[in-house]
Design a protein around this nucleic acid. Structure first.
Lengths: 359, 359
DNA sequence: TTGTAAGCGTTATCAA
DNA sequence: TTGATAACGCTTACAA
């Protein structure tokens, strides 16, 4: 381990603004150093670094050796300033779901790594009046090469307009409005909810409760649509009493289940539009002495892989969040401003807990 | 010759009809534009932007007006290239826990926002031979002003040495080794585990099982220490059979609980070193027909706020992950290389589910 | 295929 | 308190 004595405290510039005065950098190898060591011109080094054509094997070798020897890494700041690209893309989100964000970041991050790009995370607040300015400032300051947005930011018209004005490549994940206005990646939410509802119907359920999602998310409405669609196809009449609003979170799942299970004619299955709400449904059922899955089947959207941790296991629609992130970054890096759409498959995961209705 | 920027500024100033702008290539306002509009020198604009001293009110006003009018945002790339700082710090982690990472990012991000800094997320793999190079490359390329590390990266000696070599300010969250080598933020894990164990003892439990955490994390050992410490103080002999290894995740919690509850003399309470494992303990107990909390009390560390979603509620030690992140960024921005340590309080949250042992 | 020179938009230095 | 000018490390256009 390195001793404390080896560490130097460096000068502090008293002129710096408060709050960040303590941070100062040191020098590193530059392209000039590399060119000198390799005995070639700066431009040749640049060519090798950027994998341009028309570089002889001889030169490339020399440069690569020098790069390795100096442990040289080009300055992103300089490349950004001089070139047309910043090698950075932004991920803008307003989503309180750690699992969603984590997996989205993992997917986007993976693709960025492959392309030697950097990902800038920008959490934001769609209710804030400064939203558009914040996004604009981010793009300006960092000179972003592109933007990825996740719901519900995807559907904020003013933000979208600002991005169009700046002519910056945009990829939206699961957009709800202006579907063809930008590149997009998505799963078919309607079909997914239809699949799950049809699955429950196939087990014999006729009274299927639905807990809808947060009103800010178009996915909520899409899932309701799929639910209705499957019911209709099965010849089951739509009963508005069986649809209860939720907000994607645990508490609202409890509340919704309580209400649904207290109906004169309670449902034999409840389909929650998120897994946190599904966990809430389980909790409510337990508190009411209703056993799952004997007396009640519970299904949900597996937004967050929570089903792994919740007892009893749920039957869920799995969304490939990480893959969505990867695909979004891929669209951005491969196609830029060209509008491209990519649909990813969802997955119906049937666990042992779903059962036919009793009685 | 009129520059593109000047033309663009001119167009804006002369209030061109909408539509004409589409033909003009979008260019951002520069510091030069601001200085021209404000009628001052570039350096004066720079002074205002950096809140340096020796700027008259008069000048400041003029500059601020021009900045607002042009919606000017300084180029980070240019600032980084010309100045000593990049206004960027890195957050390096190798942690598969979405909640932890999400909250850590939220805390660090909040403090960064306040200081107008940007946070670069760098996931990594502590088992990878390229770890040190990856971190080095990140610092070089982005010219980071500082680094925040979370466990278990905090305790990788080679990575630490590399950071020292580069003389870059480092703050570690909950480090396990070389505690005084860098700035650090942490909670007292030993005391936290002691608190929980003492709590269970105070309820009358004498046989308390412990599920330890992943071996990569020093916190695992610290929590074991606190457990032993509290037992010893209470005059309860340490029984190695009651300590079962886990890995912080759900599955290992199930396995550990199964083993512990199958003992000839099973524990009346199980203390899991993470909440995911505590959820696993609950699941195992249920599968074995052991009722919680009547026959078994379950406690855990609330690493991930999962207790909110798990029924029945657990008694937990709450760690302020978000606050740890905020504090880490604060240390970095305020003190830089000066070594500073900050301990945050943990919280014992007693929920209704913990009970005295039966029989 | 390689090299030269002119920026990119800021901050640092030094002079006024 | 202000301003002119030289860096900063790279890419781009153009020349050889």
């Amino acid at each position: 381990m390195v001793s404390k004595a080896e560490r130097e405290t460096h000068d502090r510039d008293t002129n710096l603004p408060p709050g960040c005065g303590a941070l100062v950098r040191m020098t590193r190898a530059t392209i000039k150093d590399v060119s000198r060591i390799a005995g070639v011109s700066i431009k040749t080094v640049s060519r090798v670094l950027n994998k341009e054509r028309y570089v002889s094997e001889d030169m490339r070798k020399k440069v690569e050796e020098a790069v390795a020897r100096l442990n040289y890494h080009p300055s992103l700041a300089a490349r950004t300033l001089a070139g047309r690209r910043s090698f950075q893309i932004g991920l803008v989100h307003d989503n309180p779901n750690p699992y969603y964000i984590f997996n989205m970041q993992a997917g986007v991050g993976l693709r960025c790594r492959e392309a030697n790009f950097r990902m800038i995370i920008q959490p934001c607040d769609i209710a804030s009046p400064g939203l558009v300015d914040d996004i604009g400032a981010l793009i300006d300051q960092a000179q972003l090469d592109g933007i990825i947005m996740t719901p519900p930011v995807t559907d904020v018209g003013t933000a979208l307009a600002e991005l169009f004005r700046r002519k910056i490549p945009v990829v939206r994940v699961q957009p709800g409005t202006d579907l063809t206005a930008t590149s997009a990646v998505y799963i078919d939410n309607v079909q997914a909810a239809d699949d799950m509802t049809a699955h429950l119907v196939s087990l014999g359920h006729r009274r299927i409760g639905l807990v809808t999602g947060h009103a800010n998310y178009f996915a909520s409405g899409q899932r309701l649509t799929g639910y209705r669609q499957a019911l209709q196809r099965a010849g089951i009449g739509f009963d508005a009493a069986l649809v209860h609003p939720g907000q994607f979170d645990f508490r609202s799942g409890i509340a919704a289940a309580k209400a649904l299970l207290a109906l004169p004619e309670p449902p034999t299955a409840i389909f929650a539009s998120s897994d946190e709400m599904a966990a809430g449904v389980l909790t409510a059922a337990h508190r009411m002495g209703i056993s799952v899955p004997d007396q009640l089947s519970v299904a949900g959207f597996d937004d967050t892989d929570l089903a792994q941790v919740v007892w009893p296991a749920l039957t869920t629609i799995r969304q490939p969040i990480r893959d969505l992130g990867y695909a979004a970054a891929d669209l951005l890096l491969e196609f830029g401003e060209t509008i491209e759409r990519r649909q990813l498959p969802h997955e119906l995961i049937v666990r042992g807990s779903t059962a036919a209705p009793k009685g």
